[in-house]
Design a binder for these strands. Structure first.
Lengths: 186, 186
DNA sequence: TCCGACATGTAACTGGTTACATGATTTG
DNA sequence: CAAATCATGTAACCAGTTACATGTCGGA
């Protein structure tokens, strides 16, 4: 695939950045749907520059420290646009250790299974809170500014996902409880 | 992490299997939340056997063809149970090329963005149909049999996820349409 | 007799993480 | 002056995919 290159091109299309800046973007604005460490970003920038999709000028911060300010080239913009217009397949089913655990949970006591579910629920609720907090950062909802608008859409997606995870976990907990009650019944 | 080993141990805990059988299980019952190709499974079985978590006896199918029937050892069961009882972290945010595309979609025409969203929606709806069809395979809902019960729970999770994806995409489409209407308004 | 399923493995490569390595600048 | 942050890179490793490689068995 090589999706990382488009993530970088997309960011550089918004504004010129250093590898360090890009790394921070992956940690913040993109973190909901893509990630990359600096150890992956710097080599990628190098090959991108070699292929003339980006270019850089070396700047001096302070007295000595060099930094490379990267910008997207016209050729890079063309490549980005081509990708941006294409249909993509739905994301491959993500691996989920908890679901695997749940799938095999017939080998542990019913009460313990419920505890596992509750623990998972708590973690998702916490994350959901964090996402809802991010929602308050927009001054209008939905935001009017174009760049903020796509931020908003993907944030909605993240919130949506967490909410549905919580719903599912609650359903599971209830089903397990019912089941446990029935068993102790007989 | 090394989660693959627990997936294999979990399956072998249900019944003895060959590497070939395991491969099929990953393609079917586990496919919603874990995957592995035979090229990964066979080496893993080898190391698992070396560590005495599983053992195998060689059987002959027909006249010559050898197959290795693997079974979990007591030690393997202990290891599996230990994993099964532990709290796991929520799955790492899965990479999602479509969300990345949407995030950068301010560089393409509004109508085209809507087309991308609609295409994604169609794909998710198709998959959802498939999952709902799987739901009809249980004779009672929720099923009473213990092994079927956890199948059922994870299937609910998958359906839940697809439904919420569809909801989100519909929301996005509506927001984009509204936005487009407003713009042509001025 | 041919084809699809059964059956098992290895090799090369890709994407990504963790750790190694270094050093400058700013701020408290 | 110490600590956090800025800044850039490489190396070793791990999980996973694709391709290579081989051969048997059962049924149409």
């Amino acid at each position: 695939m090589g999706v990382l290159r488009y993530a970088i091109l997309g960011l550089l299309n918004r504004q010129d950045m250093t590898g360090y800046d890009l790394t921070k973007e992956f940690q913040t604005s993109l973190s909901e749907f893509w990630s990359a460490k600096h150890s992956q970003i710097y080599p990628e920038l190098k090959t991108l520059a070699e292929n003339h999709l980006v270019e850089f000028k070396t700047e001096i911060t302070g007295n000595v420290l060099e930094k490379k300010l990267y910008s997207i080239t016209e050729f890079g913009k063309k490549e980005l646009l081509e990708w941006a217009e294409n249909y993509t397949k739905i994301p491959p089913l993500p691996k989920d250790e908890f679901k695997l655990q749940l799938f095999f949970s017939d080998c542990i006591p019913a009460q313990q299974r419920i505890q596992l579910l509750k623990n998972q629920l708590e973690q998702h609720q916490k994350w959901l809170e964090h996402l809802n907090h991010n929602l308050t950062k927009f001054d209008t909802v939905p935001p009017t500014k174009e760049s903020e608008f796509s931020d908003y859409l993907v944030l909605l997606g993240a919130i949506n996902r967490e909410e549905s995870s919580c719903n599912w976990l609650n359903t599971c907990i209830n089903l397990c409880k019912k089941r446990a009650a029935k068993k102790s019944d007989t």
